[in-house]
Design a protein around this nucleic acid. Structure first.
Length: 506
RNA sequence: GCGCCAUUAGCUCAGUGGUAGAGCAUCUGACUUUUAAUCAGGUGGUCGCAGGUUCGAGUCCUGCAUGGCGCACCA
C-alpha cells in the first residue's frame, strides 16, 4: 500500500472505516518518509509511571520526568493542547505548548491520534485548576494506532467484541485490567501460602491416555506418532496421587483442566484447578487449610473479608459453617440418607420434591441431582458440606464404624471422609481423606462405570497398580481457582476473571 | 441441543411499512491552563447474512450466523 499518496485524492472516504485507517496510514507514511518511523524505536527510558506523578507531586513539582504510554484524550487549544497519557499504573494529564515545544513539534503533537503510544520528557506542574500535569518538553511516537478506539464515555460494551478483542477491552475498560491483575496476584499468593507450608509445586501431563479423576466428559485428541486417541485431562488427581506413592509428601499443581461441556456464568470448558495432596493428614486438616487459604487470599489480595457478590453479602471473616450432608438433605430436601438407599427411593423422593432426575444415569448421579436441586441453592455463606455418601465419592475413604458412631450415623450408612466448600450457591472446593485401599478402589471405579458416570469408561490400571505399591493415608483438595477469584472479587461471571474466555470460532 | 431476546456509522444508541438519524470519534477552520474543553462547518451506512411478502422493508415473514438470558449438559 502506498502510504504517501496525496490526501486530496481520497476525499470521500475519510469518515468510513477504511477512511479512518487510511488517514492514519498516511500520517505514518509521512513520518516514515521524513525519517521518523515510530516502529524503528526499540526502547524508551522512563523515570516514572503515570500514577506516581500525582501520588508524589510534592517531591516532583518542577522536576523533569519521563513517561511512556497510550494517548487516551486530546483537548487542543490552538497554540497549546492537553492530553491524557495512560500506562499500566493509571493516567496523568500532559500539556503541549508552542512556547516550550516550538512550532514544528507542536504540529506533530496535534497530529497524534487517540491510541498512539508515545514516550515523553517534561516538567511537572499544576494547572490553575489544580490539575497535576506534565508539560511536555519533547516526545517520541513509539507506535502508531491504525484502528479507532471505542468511544470515551461508554467504552466498549458489546460483550462479544469485549471477549473476542480483549486487548481493546483492556485498553478502554480499565477495571477489567485491574481485576485480571488481582487474579494473578491471588494465584501468586496461593503459591506463596502453600510453598510456605512445605508444599512442592509439580507439573503432570495434560494429555491422558485414560480420562479419570473426576466425572466429566473429556475433550478427545489424537496422537499421530502413537496412532492413539488421547484425552485432555479433566482432573489432576491420579497423577498427583502417584507422586505420593513415590514418596513426595506434600505436592500441589495449579493448572488448566478441560471439560467438554457448555458455557455459562460459572463454567468455562477450560479452567484452572488447584489440587494438592498431603500425606498422613486427614480431611479435617485439609478443611482447616482450605479455610485458612481462602481467608488469607481475601485479606492479602482483595483486602476484604466481606464481599458483595450479586445479590449476596458474603462474609469470610467468621469460621465457615460445617453441615453434614445428611443434615443438609434432611433440612432442605426433607429426607435422610437412611431413606435413600435404592433407585426406587430416589424416584419416590424426586417425585415428591418435583425434581426431574437425569435419564439413563445411575444411583449416584441421581442422588447428586437431588442434592444440587434442593440443597445447593441454600448455600450462600461459606459452608463446608461434610461426610458425603460413598455412592458419589469414588475416591474418598469410608468412615470407620467408630467415627460413624461418634458422629451419630447409623452403622449401615456408607459415608466418607469428604467435604465440599460452597459459597454463593457455587461449589468452590472438594476434598477428602483419600481412599488408599486398592481393592476397594477397584470396586468403586468399576461401580462408577456400571453407574454410567460420564468419563468413567475405562479403568486406569496403572493408578490401581500404583496404589498396590502402598499409598499412605492422606488428605487431598481441589479448588476451582476461577470460581474462587469470582467470589473473592465479587464478580458473578466466570468470563470476567478469565483473560481469554472461550467463544465460538467466528 | 431447546426457548426468548438482540444485531443500524469506528464506539454508544434512537428510528412504531413511506427520503437512514443523534452523541462521541474523525476531517476543515477558530482558540496558549483545558479536563465530557468550547464554537462553526463537513465526511462517514451492504441497517448481521440469504430469501420471501408488499407499489414500497431498517421495520412484517422464513432460514442461517454470532451473541445475551433462561433451560439442558456440567462434582
Amino acid at each position: 500500500m502506498d502510504n504517501t499518496k496525496d490526501l486530496n485524492q481520497e476525499p470521500l472516504t475519510e469518515g468510513s472505516t477504511e477512511g479512518y485507517r487510511q488517514i492514519k496510514l498516511d500520517k505514518l507514511g509521512a513520518l516514515q518518509t521524513a525519517g521518523h518511523d515510530p516502529f524503528s524505536q526499540v526502547r524508551y527510558d522512563r523515570t516514572h509511571c503515570a500514577a506516581s506523578i500525582e501520588a508524589c507531586y510534592d517531591e516532583l513539582e518542577g522536576q523533569a520526568v519521563s513517561l511512556a504510554g497510550r494517548l487516551m484524550a486530546k483537548r487542543l487549544h490552538g497554540k497549546a493542547g492537553f492530553g491524557d497519557i495512560m500506562d499500566e499504573s493509571g493516567r496523568v494529564q500532559i500539556y503541549f505548548k508552542k512556547d516550550v515545544l516550538g512550532e514544528e513539534a507542536l504540529e506533530q503533537a496535534k497530529e497524534l491520534d487517540l491510541g498512539d503510544i508515545i514516550g515523553l520528557k517534561g516538567r511537572v506542574f499544576k494547572t490553575r485548576t489544580g490539575q497535576v500535569t506534565v508539560e511536555v518538553g519533547e516526545f517520541t511516537l513509539l507506535a502508531k494506532i491504525l484502528q479507532t478506539l471505542p468511544e470515551k464515555w461508554h467504552g466498549l460494551q458489546d460483550v462479544d467484541q469485549r471477549y473476542r478483542q480483549r486487548y481493546v477491552d483492556l485498553i478502554v475498560n480499565r477495571d477489567v485490567l485491574e481485576r485480571l491483575r488481582l487474579r494473578s496476584r491471588a494465584v501468586s499468593e496461593i503459591r506463596r501460602f502453600l510453598d510456605g507450608r512445605g508444599f512442592l509445586e509439580v507439573e503432570t501431563p495434560m494429555l491422558h491416555a485414560i480420562s479419570g479423576g473426576a466425572t466429566a466428559e473429556p475433550f478427545k485428541t489424537y496422537w499421530n506418532a502413537l496412532k492413539s486417541d488421547y484425552y485432555l485431562r479433566i482432573a489432576i488427581e491420579l497423577h498427583l496421587k502417584r507422586l505420593i506413592v513415590g514418596g513426595f509428601e506434600r505436592v500441589y499443581e495449579i493448572g488448566r483442566v478441560f471439560r467438554n461441556e457448555g458455557v455459562d456464568t460459572s463454567h468455562n470448558p477450560e479452567f484452572t484447578m488447584l489440587e494438592l495432596y498431603w500425606a498422613y493428614v486427614d480431611y479435617t486438616d485439609i478443611m482447616a487449610l482450605t479455610e485458612e487459604l481462602t481467608r488469607h487470599v481475601a485479606r492479602e489480595v482483595f483486602k476484604s473479608e466481606q464481599v458483595t457478590y450479586g445479590e449476596y453479602e458474603l462474609d469470610f471473616s467468621q469460621p465457615f459453617r460445617k453441615v453434614k450432608f445428611d443434615d443438609a438433605m434432611r433440612e432442605y430436601a426433607g429426607c435422610s440418607l437412611a431413606e435413600l438407599k435404592t433407585m426406587d427411593d430416589l424416584k419416590r423422593e424426586a417425585a415428591r420434591l418435583e425434581i426431574k432426575l437425569p435419564e439413563e444415569r445411575g444411583f449416584g448421579r441421581c442422588l447428586d441431582e437431588i442434592f444440587k436441586e434442593m440443597v445447593e441453592p441454600h448455600l450462600v455463606q461459606p459452608t463446608f458440606i461434610i461426610d458425603y455418601p460413598v455412592s458419589i465419592s469414588p475416591l474418598a475413604k469410608r468412615m470407620s464404624a467408630a467415627d460413624k458412631a461418634a458422629a451419630g450415623y447409623p452403622a449401615d450408612l456408607d459415608v466418607t471422609y469428604r467435604f465440599e466448600l460452597f459459597a454463593a450457591t457455587m461449589e468452590l472446593a472438594n476434598s477428602f481423606s483419600e481412599l488408599n485401599d486398592p481393592v476397594d478402589q477397584r470396586q468403586r471405579l468399576e461401580y462408577q462405570i456400571a453407574d454410567k458416570a460420564e468419563g468413567a469408561s475405562e479403568l486406569d490400571e496403572d493408578f490401581l497398580t500404583a496404589m498396590e505399591y502402598g499409598m499412605p493415608p492422606m488428605g487431598g483438595l481441589g479448588i476451582g481457582i476461577d470460581r474462587l477469584i469470582m467470589i473473592l472479587s465479587g464478580t458473578p461471571a466466570i468470563r470476567e476473571v478469565i483473560i481469554f474466555p472461550q467463544l465460538r470460532h467466528k
